[in-house]
Amino acid sequence: MRNNEFIRAVRLESKLKKEKTVLLMEALSASISKILSEGDSLSIQGFGTFELKKKNERLSVNPSTGKRFMIPPKLLPVFRPGISLKNKVKNFGSDEQ
């Protein structure tokens, strides 16, 4: 599903006006970004958790030139599905067949 289809689906689901939906979309993304950028996590009941994960610095070697690079540490936003969503996803294929 693409972004515009998604906006439409959310609009139908929430029965809000189009302008409001678009506005809220942006506000929600901004809020999630803000929460994560402050090092906090966001958990949505029944869905999952958005949080930051720190990746440590590491050595990397370019295999063709043999040059070594120190890749700096970074903070990566990750999503951990909640238990119920995870189980639904896990059994996704088997339900179908």
Binding site: I35, S41, L42
Partner: peptide, 10 residues
């Protein structure tokens, strides 16, 4: 830092 936000906080 390291606060857990829930749907209400969002």
């Amino acid at each position: 830092m390291n606060n857990k936000f829930l749907l209400q906080d969002l």
